[in-house]
Every structure is written in structure tokens, then in C-alpha cells.
Write a protein that binds this DNA or RNA. Structure first.
Lengths: 349, 349
DNA sequence: CTGAAAGCGCTTACAG
DNA sequence: CTGAAAGCGCTTACAG
């Protein structure tokens, strides 16, 4: 019984044509909603198609038209944060356009990357979306050299690139986060940046400085720590900040992963958030709202960035030209409960 | 300058053949490492292939051989927890086998599902992996009816299914979690289960009961709460548990998302983990280690499950028969810092 | 060892 | 409005 249901044999366009007593040309036309078919004929064929649950052979179509209906999304590493938001957005528009999404992760392995590049070149992709930060961004150049449409998502490091990029207003985010903390009454605000050789890390820091300066608060360099966007950096740098003779009353974490690290460090010292220390993140990754307390953070419109990227890529594929080589969507402040006015008492350490 | 690099025109097998002065048959043979080619000829063609950086046309190959080189993974909803682990595992083996992974999310939308099903039927997939809990599992039957290899990942609800499934030892996980808490000295252990109409939720509960009974601790039904595997359920049920006249000293959360909810509820009441309350989760999702304090939880071997599923699917595709229709990988306890011996003092509420 | 030829299932000028 | 035919780039019997 389990093995029943053999072979609900797939029909070809030829068989449909034969059964309908017309040519494959005509069937193809109704399939593709092309003009030049009598109304009655069209209806009859349409009925037949539905009756048999016919669906076109993908490979044949692909071979003929030179399109695969596939879009590639290349991610360095699956993490469940930033990547998920982007994927969601991309999915959403591809679902509309009828493309399928293939995901590759290179795990920073050059071999895998090379193999991937080969596989991609057999025109088995209509276009590729690169999720930055992608160190080996040379991949984009290779793609372009092979005439494969490509768009990079995330914030580029170079001011201009040959391929289109889509990002968000990082500097403004850094500014907004800091300004918010200041508005709460904070004067001593620690910041744990990302690696400062990245433009995107420096942008956050610049926003932080700008906010401080506008509020006439001198920038204290001993409150600026450099991290690597990893949870562990958040932990370490928080410990360092806590040892400061005059510790900050708030910490701006650079990204949410580092914020999670700040949480852990503070938890160990039994320093309650936001009562004794305010914490603000950056990204608004899925788990930000799940933290205890829920993290106030700068929202990067990940889903929208994914959608925008997919839409632009589709336009590139259609041969249209883009009005701009770089677009930025705006970041925004998401208020949750990890920030409050500065503590009055001193830290219990 | 930016617009340079036009058309690094793709070569066809015919052109390679012509240039090498042989037939396409021969080129095809060396391409596919088939016998029947003179050593010198093979070497010459090989060199030519590499020199021109030739790569086969995917569509043509697909059309001829009836294989797409694509594997589909269907996820109901992208969440960044369970799904990520599975994806990683699947990716890992597909990278080896040379298949590409296409991801679809249906978001429980029947329309999307239907469209997906149509698209999948044009033999544009070699096989599909279904990520459970998939309510509308009828999709698996449809797939089977169309002779598309399918494997479901996650714990099935029915004892037997027509399609192969791969899961983990849930019951044992429930038992292990509870036993661990007991070994720490806990006698009053709250549990927040998943929806009890799911076998997989009941399995955890059964494991919990078994552990209690073995330790001669009477099961207190007022300590058993039902959730829906969502963070909010963790919050709500924890509040309920805290109102209990004789509140538990430990909470077993059913899954990590609910554990995050437990954390939030406890944080609000300023009940420190693990000092005043122990918490244990289930799944060991990516962010479990990022929580404050890092969550002790039952590890589901997500990555391994993904690998196993992909491997079995590949075997199915190759026409092999599986030795069993269901395989379970084992869960294990991951010790982090959210559990400790029961509190001596009473709760500050 | 080597190659000519058919054919996978479509789409698209082109002719009628 | 309708259809015959070529061709997309491969692979695979089959013949030599």
C-alpha cells in the first residue's frame, strides 16, 4: 500500500498539444499568455492544462530562454541574526516574482568559494545577492566579469564600488543612539565599537562623537573600546569599562551581539539593567526583543533591505539601469526597556 | 572603465570540441570522467577546458539527465533558532555532493504553498526536506504522489508516516533535564510544556514525570503549565508559577524560546537566576549561549539532524532504500550557568 | 579509441 | 489565428 501511487507520469507540452489537437506552438502561447490564439482554442487548451495539472519543464524552458529562475544569496556564515532578516525580505519579493532562492554559505573557506563560483558560472543563476560584510569581496568583481548581475547588501567599506550596494544610515544610527542616551541624562557613555578599520564601525563612532559634541559633552577617549562585533568582545570590554575609575552610566554596544555580551558581564556583577546601567544595541536582530530586559537598540531595516536588494537585482536582470549605485534605508530607534536615566548610587563592585 | 569587461562569452561544448579538433562526444566523456578516451586526447582536452575556464551548461545537462542538482528545504517560518541549525547541517553535506540548496518559506500561507507545490513539480528539484512542525503535512503526501523524494525533519506527530522522518530523543531529553534538576536537590520543579496535542510536547512531559517518579517525588499537577512554545507563554506561565502558594525552585521550559520568556518574567521580579530560581531549556538554539546567564539546556543535535536528513535524501534520490523509516539522534544535556541547587531563602515577591 | 546523430522539452522567428 | 521547423547545449546509445 505504501508503495502504491507509482509514476503520476509527467506530461509534456507535446502530449497536451496532441490531445488538444493543436500544435505545441499554440499550447506554448497559451502557457505564456502570448497573443495570437483564438479565444475558444485558448479556453480549450487552458482547461486541458488544468485538468492534467500540467506544469512546464523547468530545464527545457531554462535552456531555451537562458534563465534559471534562481537567485543566489551568498552568506559568509549562518548566524541567525542579521542574515535571517535579510533572507525574509528577499524571500518575500522572490515569492512574488516566481524566482527561487538558493542559499550558499562559504564559511570563509576559499575552496568552497571557488567551487561555488564555478558552479554559479554555468548560468544556473539569474543573479546573486552578496551579504556583506564580505571580506573577500573580489567575488563581486568575478561575478561582474562574467556578466552576472550582482548586488551587495550591508555596508560597504569603500566609498564607491563597481557593483550596486544597499545599506542603511549607520552614522545616523550612531548619532541617534547616543543622542537618546544623552536625552535621558547620561553624560558618561561608553561605546564598544566594531573593528575600526571598517568604515561601518567608524560611522557609528562618528555618530556618537557628533551627538556628544552637539550636547557639549567632551569626548572621553578612555570610554571608547574597540570590539570585533562578537559577544565575547562585549563581555571583555564591559569588564574593562567597569574597572574604569569613573565608569560610564550607559553603554552603546555597536551591535546586538556585543550587547548580549554586555548583558552577561553586567549580570555577573549583579548590575541591574537599566537601573544601574543603560545598554543600547545596534541592528535589532531577532533575539534583541527576547533578551532580559528587552534590548533598546537601533533598528536596521533588515527585511526592507532584503526586499530592496531583491527588487533592484530583478531590475538589473531585466536589463534596466539603476538610478543610483548605492541606496541607504534609514535606521531607527527601537525603544524597549534597557535604558533609563543614569543611576544615582554607585556601582556595586 | 567601470563598464569595461563586457561579455567574457561563455563557451559551449561544441566550441571546445571544434577547437580541440574532436567530437562533442569525446569532450563530454572527459568532462564526465567517462572511459573511452585516449590518454593524450584526454589530457589535451582537459587542458583546453581549464584554459578556457569552461563550465557545463546546467540547464542542458538538467534537461538531458532529468536532474536539477537542486534540493529544496521547506520551512514554515524563518526564525533564526531551530531552522538555522538544520540549515547548517544540510548545507554541509550538500556542499560535498555538489547540490545547491533552495529555501522556501510558506509562512503558513496556503496560496504560497500551492504555488510552491506547482513549481516544485516541474522536476526542478531532486528532492525535498520538510522542516517540521509542519501542520499541513499533507504536502508530503502530494510530493510522494509525484514521486519526489522527501524526508521530514523534526519530530513527527503520528507514530508512523509514509515518508521517512528524522528526529531526536525527545522523551530522553525531558527525562535528562528533570533528572539533572533533581540531582541538584530540586523537589519542586515547574514545567512549561508545549501544546499538549503534539506528541513531541507530551514526550517531554512524560520524561519529566518519569524522572520525578524514579526519584519518588510526587508529580504536582499544579506545577505543570501548558504553553505554545512561544516566548510570551514563558512569561505568562512563569508569572502564574510565581503566584503559586508554594512556588517551584526550578523551571523546565519546554523549549529555549519559552526559557527566554521565563528569564524576562524573572528579571521583572528581580529573581536572580540561578540563585533564586533554576531554569533549563530545550533545543539549544543559537542564542541559548548568549543569554544572561547562559542557558543550561537540552541540546538537540540540529546540525547533525540536518546532515543526516540530507544524507538520507541523497540516498533516496540515488534509488537506494533506507534501513529504517525513522531515525532519532540523541539529545544531550548542555551545562551552562542557569541551574544551581535550590534557594534557601524565599522569593522576593 | 572516436564520432555522427538523435533527442531531452521547450520557445520563437517565420510562413501560411 | 495556426503550425512546421529550427535550435538552446548537452548526453548517450550505437556504429565504426
Amino acid at each position: 500500500m505504501l508503495l502504491a501511487q507509482r509514476q503520476s507520469k509527467r506530461l509534456t507540452i507535446t502530449q497536451i498539444a496532441k490531445e488538444a489537437g493543436v500544435s505545441t506552438t499554440t499550447v506554448s502561447k497559451v502557457l505564456n499568455q502570448l497573443p495570437g490564439v483564438g479565444e475558444q482554442t485558448r479556453a480549450r487548451i487552458q482547461a486541458m492544462i488544468e485538468q492534467h495539472d500540467y506544469v512546464q519543464n523547468h530545464a527545457a524552458r531554462h535552456l531555451r530562454k537562458g534563465q534559471s529562475g534562481l537567485i543566489d544569496l551568498v552568506i559568509m556564515r549562518l548566524e541567525g541574526g542579521y542574515d535571517i532578516g535579510i533572507m525574509k525580505g528577499v524571500q518575500e519579493v522572490l515569492e512574488e516574482s516566481g524566482h527561487r532562492l538558493v542559499i550558499s554559505t562559504t564559511n570563509e573557506d576559499e575552496d568552497i568559494e571557488r567551487r561555488w563560483l564555478r558552479r554559479i558560472q554555468d548560468q544556473a543563476t539569474d543573479g546573486v545577492l552578496l551579504l556583506l560584510p564580505y571580506e573577500r569581496i573580489g567575488i563581486a568583481d568575478t561575478l561582474m566579469a562574467h556578466n552576472i548581475p550582482v548586488i551587495a547588501i550591508g555596508d560597504r567599506n569603500e566609498p564607491t564600488t563597481a557593483y550596486p550596494t544597499i545599506g542603511s544610515t549607520i552614522w545616523l544610527g550612531g548619532y541617534t543612539a547616543t543622542e537618546y542616551l544623552i536625552s535621558l541624562g547620561h553624560r558618561r557613555i561608553g561605546i564598544i565599537t566594531g573593528p575600526l578599520h571598517l568604515t561601518t564601525s567608524r560611522a557609528r563612532l562618528a555618530g556618537y562623537r557628533e551627538a556628544l559634541e552637539r550636547a557639549n559633552i567632551p569626548v572621553d577617549p578612555t570610554l571608547i573600546c574597540e570590539g570585533n562585533y562578537l559577544l565575547g568582545d562585549g563581555v571583555q570590554q564591559t569588564f574593562a569599562l567597569l574597572k574604569h575609575p569613573d565608569p560610564p552610566t550607559a553603554i552603546f554596544a555597536g551591535n546586538d551581539a556585543q550587547a548580549a555580551g554586555v548583558y552577561q558581564a553586567l549580570y555577573q556583577h549583579n548590575i541591574r539593567i537599566p537601573d544601574l546601567m543603560s545598554v543600547i544595541g545596534f541592528d535589532d536582530v531577532t533575539y534583541a526583543a527576547q533578551m532580559s530586559p528587552p534590548l533598546t537598540t537601533i533598528h536596521q531595516p533588515l527585511v526592507e533591505m532584503g526586499k530592496m536588494a531583491a527588487n533592484l537585482l530583478l531590475r538589473l536582470i531585466a536589463g534596466q539601469t539603476l538610478e543610483s549605485n548605492h541606496v541607504e534605508l534609514s535606521t531607527s530607534l527601537v525603544l524597549r526597556t534597557s535604558c533609563a536615566p543614569p543611576r544615582q548610587e554607585s556601582l556595586p563592585i
